[in-house]
Write a protein that binds this DNA or RNA. Structure first.
Length: 833
RNA sequence: GCCGGGAUGGCGGAAUUGGCAGACGCAGGGGACUUAAAAUCCCCCGGUAGCAAUAUCGUACCGGUUCGACCCCGGUUCUCGGCACCA
């Protein structure tokens, strides 16, 4: 240990030692309790940013802490390495996506290594490699065999700029999540995964996951959007057909005064064919086609629509009602048609007002402030039934059940559950992804490639035009093949998979990353899974986290995994922000962004202060879930603290050389240091292990260091205690800043790596004080603080305090009405006068 | 509009079960060391009044419960995030 803290030399030295000794490599060990600590793997953009550093620093603290606590810790890393940027780079620079990707991965690996994260690199998984996507294809085929993959022609979300389709989840505000272009609709034949089959399980299991943030569970719940209601049929005048609608408010059926169909409703053209209204209806449908989703779903937009010329008949009232079409009715939800109840639905109210349709109230809350016969807006709350025949007087909630049952009896309705969740569209018209291993044969239809022929390799003889069809279609070697079933000429699917499939099972591959016989060995997966702690950005709250849960359930149902939920505990870390001046000169604190220029590169910080300082600052500046504002002076502060610790340990290593850590705390100062020392062990253990509040854990160690500085300058110091304090400080700090701690550990004469050293244990007896400070309050206000003997009960504390002169003076001449004594905490005396 | 967070000094943030508000750090002020600077070490640091001891106000706002509220309850404002014509 040198006198100066030479972070560069120290970090290089220990990273090399760790690598040579292969300390982070783990294997299944049934004699030890396992702990799987996982951070979301990065996309290999080429450079680590501060968000990565934060994510991986949090994970590294947890992994190292659990290892020191005796767990067999799996802490893997890999790269989510298929995707559009590699392809765009290929178009721009004429290089192959694989070249761009692998050089970026190499660069990021070295950056990760420079930060000293404790990854088992032997388990590294890169999704673009054959050894990975081979098993991705195998899993896809298992889905297909189970009936969970199908191809279907549908209007799909199309991004004209990326020239590919998008999943519903990838359309944000009607725009492409990636490039922000407006998304349009296009009819295409595409592959889907039947995630809707798992909608109930995905929703219900959320209740069983106490280790997930409420926020994420709510977001998934809303996304799945389960809605329980009733489907019922309306007769169409002059037609054999019935118009089926879905409603959650079947109690309002007597208030229906019109019907609305979606312009895309399959029955529409037949209904209007040959009528006077046909031209107007077709014209409206044509207009709607040209609207983007944003324009169409804008709530501020005034309702539009056209009368179809046809009438429906209410099955309960036999009332005759006009059928309209309007774009506010979505073909993709429910039955694509609704019953219009203007009195009790705001959208229907707006529509009825615009078209001068009748408004009949059927639910009345019986309150003065609501006049249902004179509504200015729809009344959507609860009340008693009116204008509803035999149901009048019932609570509307009861009427939902009663009316649904009656409709069922006459065969015109039934209970029905609807979901917002749609099947997952996974085809992408791109090159840089896993080829969908399906073959189309004119005789056999769609059939999968034989499993023994996997992987279906990405062809290399392709042109990257960036337009239209998948570039794979330009390959002269790929498309033509033979049918695996009948052997006749057939054609391969040229689309690739959404990269979200790759990331839906990578945590399973880590359990057995080098397996070339299977995606993973179920026994190994059974040992490691589920992930005990998953850490990543909240931006994946819906997409990735729900897809991964879906995959896990399917793989469980296939008998490949024991558990059906992948992540027991989830931590969503906050973003890294930095302040900057905008065009007007205002000080804005926002997300670090290259286009704004308010970024700090990890590399720069590591070069200037070292990896330990970067890690320490990022963990200290804010609790992990909250946003973190970058502060250059804050980084300096973290660096100063590490120097301060280094100097302390350097001094103590000399001063306490060869002294055993056996001691008895004799003096008041000994006892105080011993107390703070053990209390710090307890606090840091809780802060890392239970609370995930690394910032307060680090604060506690700072306080301990301040106390040791104070203590060591005293005349009468206990060398054994001091030695123990020094060693403990290094151990407590080591999950946060491992390099400097290894160096100090060595400086203290230790030969083992502290990576495997047992975590310090709090000596509870040191926490028992002879006297404790309690607070004396008068009417709830602090008036006095005094030391009292420890262990006094309620009465003893009261009696002791009332004897003290200071307390006597406080109550003198006053009328004591009540006293509240809380042992170990305080005494509150309520007085009058 | 609906659903979730959040609001505490000049700043980031503490307060773990209803019990000393402001730990720890940053910035700032003062001092020691130094020829000087850097580094380091020590002290001060919410507002108001006061030389001071101390008093008093103070956790977005209004009200409530309690001996006692940053914490629990009711209402309001602002703010961040998610969803949004889902019948």
């Amino acid at each position: 240990m040198k006198e100066q803290y030479d972070f560069k030399a120290i970090e290089e030295k220990w990273q090399k030692k760790w690598e040579e000794a292969d300390v982070f490599h783990v294997t299944e060990d049934p004699t030890k309790e396992k702990y799987y600590c996982l951070e979301m793997f990065p996309y290999p953009s080429g450079n680590l940013h501060m968000g990565h550093v934060r994510n991986y620093s949090i994970g590294d603290v947890v992994a190292r802490f659990k290892t020191m606590n005796g767990f067999n810790v799996l802490h893997p890393i890999g790269f989510d390495s298929f995707g559009l940027p590699a392809e765009n780079a290929a178009i721009k620079h004429g290089t192959h996506p694989a070249v761009w990707t692998s050089s970026n991965i190499a660069e990021m690996e070295s950056q990760l290594k420079r930060l000293g994260f404790s990854y088992d690199w032997d388990r590294e998984a890169c999704t673009y490699k054959e050894e990975y996507y081979k098993w991705m294809q195998w899993i896809f085929i298992q889905f297909w065999k189970k009936g969970l993959a199908y191809k279907k022609e549908n209007p799909v979300n199309w991004c004209p700029s990326c020239a590919t389709v998008l999943a519903n989840e990838q359309v944000v505000d009607g725009k492409c999540e990636r490039c922000k272009s407006e998304v349009t609709k296009k009819d295409l034949s595409q592959w889907y995964l039947k995630i809707t089959d798992y909608a109930d399980r995905l929703l219900d299991d959320l209740e069983k996951m106490p280790g997930w943030p409420e926020k994420v569970k709510t977001m998934q719940k809303n996304w799945i959007g389960r809605s329980e209601g009733t489907e019922l049929d309306f007769d169409i005048e002059g037609s054999e057909k019935k118009l089926r609608v879905f409603t959650t408010r079947v109690d309002t059926v007597f208030g229906t005064t019109f019907m609305v169909m979606s312009p895309e409703h399959p029955m529409l053209h037949e209904l209007v064919h040959g009528t006077e209204q046909e031209a107007a209806v077709e014209k409206y449908c044509e207009q709607v086609k040209h609207l983007s989703d944003i324009e169409r779903t804008s709530t501020s937009k005034e309702k539009t629509g056209v009368f179809t010329g046809r009438y429906a008949v209410n099955p309960l009232t036999h009332k005759r009602m006009p059928i309209y079409i309007s774009d506010y009715v979505l073909i993709s939800y429910g039955t694509g048609a609704v019953m219009g109840v203007p009195a009790h639905d705001q959208r229907d109210f707006d529509f009825a007002t615009k078209f001068g349709l009748e408004i009949i109230p059927v639910v009345d809350p019986g309150r003065e402030d609501v006049d249902v016969n004179n509504l200015t807006a729809a009344f959507e709350a609860e009340g008693k039934m009116i204008n509803s025949g035999k149901y009048d007087g019932m609570d509307n909630k009861d009427a939902i059940v009663a009316i649904r049952d009656d409709l069922k009896k006459i065969g015109l309705g039934e209970a029905k559950t609807n979901y917002k969740l749609r099947d997952w569209l996974i085809s992408r018209q791109r090159y840089w992804g896993t080829p969908i291993p399906m073959i189309y044969c004119e005789h056999c239809g769609w059939v999968p490639e034989k499993e023994e022929n996997l992987p279906v390799l990405l062809p290399t003889d392709v042109e990257f035009t960036g337009k239209g069809e998948s570039p794979i279609a330009t390959s002269k070697t790929f498309v033509d093949t033979v049918c695996p079933v009948c052997g006749k000429p057939a054609k391969r699917e040229v689309d690739t998979m959404d990269t979200f499939l790759d990331s839906s099972w990578y945590f399973l591959r880590y359990c057995d990353a080098r397996n070339d016989k299977a995606a993973f060995d179920p026994k190994k997966a059974a040992y490691w899974m589920p992930v005990d702690q998953y850490i990543g950005g909240v931006e994946h709250a819906i997409l990735h986290l729900m897809y991964a849960r879906f995959f896990m359930m399917v793989l469980h149902d296939l008998g490949l995994t024991a558990c059906d939920e992948p992540f027991t505990n989830l931590l969503t870390q906050g973003m890294v922000l930095k302040g900057y001046n905008d065009e007007k000169g205002n000080w804005i604190v926002g997300k670090m962004s290259k286009s704004i220029g308010n970024t700090v590169s990890p590399e720069e910080i590591v070069n200037k202060y070292g990896a330990d300082t970067a890690r320490l600052f990022i963990l200290f500046a804010a609790p992990p879930e909250r946003e973190l504002e970058w502060s250059d002076t804050g980084v300096e502060g973290s660096f100063r603290f590490l120097n301060r610790v280094y100097r302390l340990i350097y001094d103590l290593a000399e001063q306490t050389k060869g002294i055993p850590t056996v001691y008895r705390a004799e003096t008041k100062d000994d006892k105080q240091l011993n107390y703070i020392l053990n209390n710090t062990i307890k606090r840091v253990t809780d802060d890392i292990g239970k609370r995930f509040n690394f910032n307060t854990g680090i604060s506690a160690i700072m306080e301990l260091v301040n106390e040791i500085y104070r203590y060591k300058e005293l005349e009468d110091v206990n060398m054994g205690l001091l030695r123990y304090a020094a060693e403990t400080t290094v151990l407590l700090l080591s999950p946060f800043v491992p390099h400097i701690c290894e160096e100090m550990w060595e400086g203290l004469g230790k030969e083992d790596s502290l990576y495997f050293h047992p975590w310090p244990v709090c000596d509870e007896s040191a926490l028992v004080k002879d006297t404790i400070e309690i607070v004396v309050q008068i009417n709830g206000k602090v008036r006095e603080k005094m030391d009292v003997p420890n262990g006094l009960d309620r009465d003893g504390l009261l009696a002791y305090c009332m004897e003290q002169d200071a307390v006597k003076a406080l109550v003198e001449g006053k009328n004591v009405i009540k006293t509240v004594a809380v042992p170990g905490k305080l005494l509150n005396i309520v007085v009058k006068g």
